[in-house]
Amino acid sequence: RINTSYQLAAVQLCFENVSGSCIKTSYSPTARMILYMFFGFGAVLAVFGNLLVITAILHFKQLHTPTNFLIASLAGADFLVGLTVMPFSMVRSVESCWYFGDSYCKFHTCFDGSFCYASLFHLCFISIDRYIAVTDPLVYPTKFTVPISGMCIAVSWGCSVTYSFSLFYTGVNDDGLEDLVIALTCVGGCQAAMNQDWVLFGFLLFFIPTIAILILYGKIFLVAKHQARKIESTSSQIQNSAEKYKDRVTKRERKAAKTLGIAMAVFLVSWLPYFIDSLIDAYMNFITPPYIFEILLWCVYYNSAMNPLIYAFFYPWFRKAIKLIVSGRVLRNGSSEMNLFSEK
């Protein structure tokens, strides 16, 4: 009798004295503090890092280019992940309970999917932009203009938001999984079941643009390698001003393509394990242990914090913009006209 009462006391519920409450998984106080610090740091970095990217691009007129507007919109998706997804997922991951109501549970799931695919579609358009810029740098300004960049942004957001919200609000995601949903439903839970058809569709929606991006970046780096050799072979020869200008533009476009290629690689490393696991899970009767799923999920979330660090490491203009924003010099008259590029 004593042993039974001890076992009952050891089981913690998300909501005490509520019928059908989910069981709460407990961590030691030290482990909880470490997890909150790790997850919280990612959320703060995603919010403020991407806010710096958005502010820099929108404030400084020198940065008003089609590529940078795509980057600003991509940063907007990552900023929203840090603001509307990560803090709530942090509490759910550490406490193993959802305390924010059923309505926001569905919104949270929709936001998660929307911002993921928005990031992917932005990266896809950025790779097209970089391909045109590297292969034909002098004609590029007339091919990829600000209005075209705006259309790419609208398509990226429109498709991702429409797909995610229609999927989860119509309930087609769990068709055929009714028994599983009933078994897993409890007060304090927030899990979205996905049947095999929609998991496969979601994987293809990730996989096909990813393959297209990899092909484009493969071509970009082949062209960049050829251009670099050509420039080296002609550097010792006498060049006219037009040829020197073309070489300078080509080098700049190659550097931008390299930086954005690194951002793409980080995105793939963060997202691919999660999508592969989701696909395997759907066809293997959901065999992934909860802690593995949480690790993969937070690799995905942390991707939203990585891009500002990549830009800060590779873009001198971004480091200069950060200094101007943090010091408050952007509040001065005419600050938007400042020159952020050392070479002119």
Rank of each mutant, 00 (worst) to 15 (best):
K251I: 08
Y245L: 13
L222A: 15
N240W: 06
W198A: 00
F267V: 01
T210V: 03
L268W: 04
L205V: 11
L296H: 01
I280A: 00
F286I: 03
L205A: 08
F286T: 00
R248A: 14
F293C: 05
W271F: 04
R229N: 15
F293Y: 07
E253W: 11
S235E: 06
Y217M: 06
I287L: 03
I231V: 13
N195F: 07
V269H: 02
F207Q: 08
A212K: 13
I292T: 14
V199P: 03
I238H: 12
V266N: 11
P273K: 13
I238L: 11
T259F: 06
A256C: 13
L297P: 07
L279A: 04
N195H: 03
V199A: 04
K219H: 15
T259C: 02
F275P: 09
F286R: 10
I292Q: 07
T210E: 06
F275V: 05
F201T: 04
Y283A: 01
Y217R: 09
K244H: 12
E253I: 02
K258F: 00
F201M: 05
Y283V: 07
G202A: 02
P209I: 10
A228K: 11
M264I: 15
I280N: 01
L268C: 06
I292V: 13
F201K: 13
A263L: 10
L214Q: 14
V266L: 04
S235P: 05
F293S: 10
A212P: 00
E294Q: 00
L297Q: 10
V223R: 15
Q237V: 10
V269I: 14
V199E: 12
Y217H: 12
F203D: 06
I295W: 09
E294A: 04
E294D: 08
M264R: 10
N240G: 08
I215G: 07
V266K: 00
T288F: 00
F275T: 11
A257N: 05
P209S: 02
M284Q: 08
I276E: 08
K219V: 13
D277S: 14
L279W: 14
Y291H: 15
S278M: 09
L216F: 03
I220D: 06
L272T: 15
L216M: 12
W271D: 10
F286L: 02
Q239M: 05
G261S: 09
S278G: 06
T288P: 01
K251D: 07
I262S: 03
I292A: 02
R254Y: 03
I215T: 07
H226V: 15
